[in-house]
Simulated scan of single mutants.
Amino acid sequence: MPDATRTIRERPTSPHIQIWRWHATALTSIMHRFTGIGLYVGALILAGWAVALASGPEAYGAYMALLGSPLGRLVMFGLTFAVFFHLAKGVQHLVWDTGAAFRLPVANAGAVAVIAFSLVATVVVWIIAAMTGALS
């Protein structure tokens, strides 16, 4: 039996590490997962709001003060973006489920459209809220 040398060879790295580059579809796929998690957090915030509402005027006032604080508004802005992003990405997935828009340029353009729609819709909702006095 030949004597096998037991040396540890360095394993090769995958070539994609050197040549792979980000695509808009990869970014939106990851963001879709994160916004889904964010929407779960938003559901907990909504449940807390309902509990505060049922607990009386003092609890409700304290909860609304928390949501109206700068940190609360930042969280609510993020949740607004998450709702619109998750909605738009879900529509893109429905289109993909029909077998359409899989070519890379079209898929990347759709991903950019998802991001643009989410940003514009979020800003428009917050402008409307400010104009109607909902942020007071």
Rank of each mutant, 00 (worst) to 15 (best):
R21D: 09
E58Y: 03
G90C: 01
G48E: 00
F84A: 09
V91H: 02
L79H: 08
A82K: 05
W96Q: 14
G99P: 04
S29F: 07
G68Q: 08
V106C: 06
A43H: 03
P57H: 15
E10K: 12
R6W: 09
D97S: 14
G110Y: 07
L87P: 03
A47N: 03
L67A: 11
L46D: 09
V75S: 01
A111V: 00
S55F: 01
H93E: 13
A100I: 09
Q92F: 00
T98I: 05
I45N: 04
I17V: 12
V112S: 09
G90S: 04
W22Q: 11
L119W: 09
I30A: 15
A111G: 15
S69V: 06
T13H: 00
A65V: 01
L66T: 10
A116R: 08
Y40E: 00
L53Q: 13
A109K: 07
W22I: 12
S69M: 07
G78Q: 02
A65G: 04
L94T: 06
G72P: 05
K89Q: 08
R33V: 13
Y40R: 01
A52I: 02
H16L: 11
T35R: 02
L39F: 08
T13Y: 04
F34H: 02
L27N: 09
V95M: 10
I30C: 08
V75L: 11
T98G: 04
A59W: 01
K89A: 07
L71A: 14
L94G: 13
V95I: 15
A82Y: 12
G38W: 14
F84S: 04
I45W: 05
I30Y: 13
R73S: 03
L119V: 14
T5V: 12
W20Q: 15
H86F: 14
A24S: 10
Q18E: 15
V51D: 01
R33L: 12
R33W: 14
G78T: 01
A47Q: 02
G36L: 06
G90T: 12
V91D: 00
T5K: 11
